[in-house]
Design a protein around this nucleic acid. Structure first.
Lengths: 147, 147
DNA sequence: ATGTTTGCAAAGCTTTTGCACCGAT
DNA sequence: ATCGGTGCAAAAGCTTTGCAAACAT
């Protein structure tokens, strides 16, 4: 099924990286993964992390997310597909899944004749807590967190 | 309404950049915008482009897109909100809008108590033409365009 | 034995920042 | 005359690449 799984060696660096990704409760960025991996094999290189993140992504084992911090985050792909909501104020990421999204996919495939393989919904706004905390003076403008 | 619009000077660099963004048929990246801008004012600096892209984004005049090329694309915000489908094979970007998405927004706000301010749906897959061209041997794997 | 994968260091890219000068108000 | 904006160059991230050594097969 996978076109390029042949001639691939299963090193224990890959073992470690994939395990860390699988065991992470949410998503990791390359550097977080690198630091975690170094606790297990201190001599691992950052390039190995990046090379394997790319490999895992191409194999469909992980998903690459743009959470708007200027670098990628990665997440192990599990059965239940879910999406991400990023709070602009506190930076919290809320994961959620939606049924409407599945319908949307079919709608698109029918209407535009395409095949959808990756579907990522990126949402930004204010989470429940920040909404409450801000109260009625809630304005967005450019005054929020700097980024 | 906008919190930081005061003390803001309207330079003709901003005039040019915003006009180019408005007149672009689709989305531009920083470098494309920079090159276009230099045709008009050759002494403009790349940092001016970036600074103003950020400004325009914070003002809500443009939207920043992650199309998965390792850098951002920017798009003038018009009334009809639309989303992007990226073909993995030919790199074409198809814009579409969907009604289901509006419903999804309300669903989320009710269900999770958040306020959604930005909503970006990133889709990848195969476009109609590439589907046809590939025919039945269509397999994804990691053999596609290199990136 | 073979050829893929690794670690290291260096390079590559996109984006940001410091600073003196410029220019809009 | 202010003081925000610009251009330049340099820096800062994140990510990729070249290469010789290491290792899985």
């Amino acid at each position: 099924m996978k076109t390029t799984i042949n001639k691939r060696r299963w090193t224990w660096q890959r073992e470690v990286l994939l395990r860390l990704l699988r065991e992470a409760r949410g998503h990791l960025d390359a550097d977080e993964l690198y630091r975690k991996a170094r606790e297990i094999c201190p001599r691992i290189g950052l390039s190995t992390v990046y090379r394997n993140l790319r490999l895992f992504r191409d194999l469909g084992l992980i998903k690459e997310l743009q959470l708007g911090e200027g670098h990628s985050h990665y997440e192990f792909v599990r059965e239940g597909e879910h999406q991400h909501f990023l709070c602009r104020r506190c930076g919290r990421v809320i994961e959620f899944s939606s049924l409407s999204l599945k319908g949307l996919r079919e709608e698109l495939e029918l209407e535009h004749g395409v095949r959808v393989e990756v579907m990522e919904l990126r949402l930004e706004g204010l989470c429940r807590d920040c909404l409450k905390e801000r109260g009625d003076d809630a304005r967005q403008g450019s005054s929020g967190k700097d980024r």
